[in-house]
Simulated assay, not measured.
Amino acid sequence: MDKATFVYDGDCAFCTTCANFIERRVPSRATVVPWQFADLDRLGLSLEQVEEAVQWVGTDGSVASGPDAIALLLRDAGRLWEVPGRALQLRPVGALAWPAYRWVSRHRHMMPGGTAACSLPQAQREKLYGPTGRP
């Protein structure tokens, strides 16, 4: 792969708001894409992985999830963004980051920009709203 890829849940309004912030403010060279429009097979990702957490797929095919993926995205942006990216990879910070990430993930429908659809697993969203998961 010639570019790293950051994959998020495009059916979640909160996740999309965060991804839009990344695209506007974080100068990463990575492609930022919702998993619903990504070629998961080419990226080496499973549906379970992308439903569980954001994913970073490096140019070498390495994969990181959740806060580890966010740390690599920030480090890729360089300059001032590299500092929080490196901090997020420190053992004590990472030990706190995963529980915080899981809490936000479970409550993303309550976050700014979140909707009720954000709280549903993909299979339930498709039953209610069709393959795109949007009403």
Rank of each mutant, 00 (worst) to 15 (best):
T115H: 06
A100F: 05
K3Y: 14
V32T: 04
A30H: 05
D76W: 01
V33L: 14
P121F: 07
A30C: 11
L47N: 13
A71M: 03
G85I: 00
L40W: 11
G130R: 10
A53N: 11
A69V: 04
E52I: 07
P99G: 06
H109M: 06
G10F: 07
L74G: 01
C18Y: 05
V83W: 00
P34V: 05
P131K: 13
G113H: 05
E126G: 04
G10S: 05
A30N: 09
V54S: 06
W35H: 13
C15Q: 09
R25S: 00
R91Q: 14
I22Y: 03
C15I: 02
P67A: 10
D11N: 11
P84D: 03
P112A: 04
Q36P: 03
D11H: 14
P92R: 01
P135L: 03
R79A: 01
T5A: 13
V54Q: 07
A53Q: 09
Y101R: 12
Q55K: 12
R25E: 02
P135Q: 02
V104T: 06
V104D: 00
V104R: 10
Q36C: 07
V32P: 02
T31Y: 06
L72C: 08
A64N: 11
R25P: 01
A64C: 08
W103S: 06
C12N: 09
L74I: 03
S62E: 12
P27G: 03
R91K: 15
G94C: 07
G133S: 08
G85N: 07
F6A: 05
C12S: 10
Y101V: 02
F21Q: 06
L72K: 14
R79K: 06
A123H: 15
R25N: 02
V32L: 10
G10D: 05
G66F: 00
L128Q: 15
F6I: 10
L45M: 09
A19Q: 07
I70W: 01
C12P: 05
A30V: 08
A116N: 09
T132L: 13
G61P: 11
A38G: 10
Y129I: 03
E23F: 04
A38T: 15
L96P: 08
G10Y: 07
P92F: 03
A71N: 01
G114W: 00
R102S: 08
F6P: 05
W81C: 03
R29A: 15
Q124K: 15
A77N: 02
H109C: 04
R25Q: 02
A97I: 03
R125A: 00
R79C: 00
L45E: 15
P27N: 07
R102D: 12
A53W: 04
A71L: 10
D2T: 15
T17I: 00
F37E: 10
L74F: 00
P27V: 00
E52Y: 13
D9V: 02
Q122H: 13
C118I: 04
V7N: 10
C15R: 14
R29E: 13
R25W: 02
Q122M: 11
L43I: 15
Q49L: 04
G133R: 12
D76M: 02
Y129E: 00
C15E: 02
S62N: 15
I22D: 04
F14Y: 07
S105I: 04
F6G: 05
L90E: 11
P27D: 01
R79W: 00
T115A: 06
W35Q: 10
V93L: 13
L80S: 03
V26F: 01
V54F: 04
E126Y: 15
W98Q: 13
V54K: 14
R86W: 08
F21I: 12
F14E: 04
I70A: 15
R75P: 06
